[in-house]
């Protein structure tokens, strides 16, 4: 048998790889696995740990970030803000009562409405004997009254049915210590006592009548 083609053409005609050699190559590839050696695992672990530590560090020192601050101009003091959780004072409790019951007439500023509602700020009545103002709040007031040199004549509603003794004590303590007023606090016991003394009374007090009390 003679060769059908000149030998120089042989590489084109015949497959370069036999079935055998292909299978051998595949077998080799199938066996090949990049080895996740301890070294590789350790460095991946180390990378993750470093990233985590970096995040924690950044978060912790985030330029003095404070979740309570919304004003971008605020610069927190060195060492951060000191939390203040002040004790709940009777005056603070009284402020609530005041805002809920008294501001329609005496206003949040305590200045009242000129000519209509007398001021509580700078009033001698407020800083004067507590027996009088407890009565005013309990049964209300009606009649000419002079407050801080001005004359008023109006009606104040009674609060005996609405407010409890400690609420009245607290609101009076509040108005006696706010807006520059400085007078001792009113004790709930005093309110209880005066409430029982005036138990039968429903008519509002006339200021002239009150001036006789606690002289």
């Amino acid at each position: 048998m003679s060769e059908p083609f000149p030998p120089s053409h042989a590489p084109i005609e015949r497959a370069a790889a036999s079935d055998d050699s292909l299978q051998r190559a595949h077998a080799q590839l199938l066996h090949y696995r990049p080895q996740l050696t301890r070294g590789v695992l350790l460095s991946i672990g180390a990378l993750i740990a470093v990233l985590l530590a970096a995040t924690l560090y950044f978060t912790h020192n985030a330029g003095g970030f404070d979740p309570l601050v919304a004003n971008e101009d605020v610069c927190p003091p060195k060492g951060g803000f000191q939390a203040v959780t002040g004790p709940v004072t009777p005056a603070l409790l009284g402020k609530r009562v005041y805002l809920a019951n008294c501001i329609q007439c005496h206003q949040t500023t305590g200045l009242g409405v000129p000519g209509t509602f007398p001021p509580l700020a700078g009033s001698d009545w407020v800083t004067g004997p507590e027996e009088r103002i407890i009565r005013i709040v309990l049964q209300g007031a009606n009649g000419p009254i002079t407050v801080a040199g001005k004359n008023f004549n109006g009606v104040m509603t009674p609060f005996a049915p609405v407010l409890k003794d400690d609420e009245i004590a607290n609101v009076l303590t509040y108005i006696r210590s706010e807006w520059g007023n400085a007078a001792p606090e009113v004790k709930p016991e005093t309110v209880t006592r005066i409430r029982s003394e005036t138990a039968g009374r429903t008519a509002p007090w006339a200021p002239a009548e009150l001036l006789e009390i606690g002289k």
Binding site: A70, D73, V74, A83, V84
Partner: peptide, 8 residues
Amino acid sequence: EERRRNML
């Protein structure tokens, strides 16, 4: 607390 910190 927020009011105190944001007042400027």
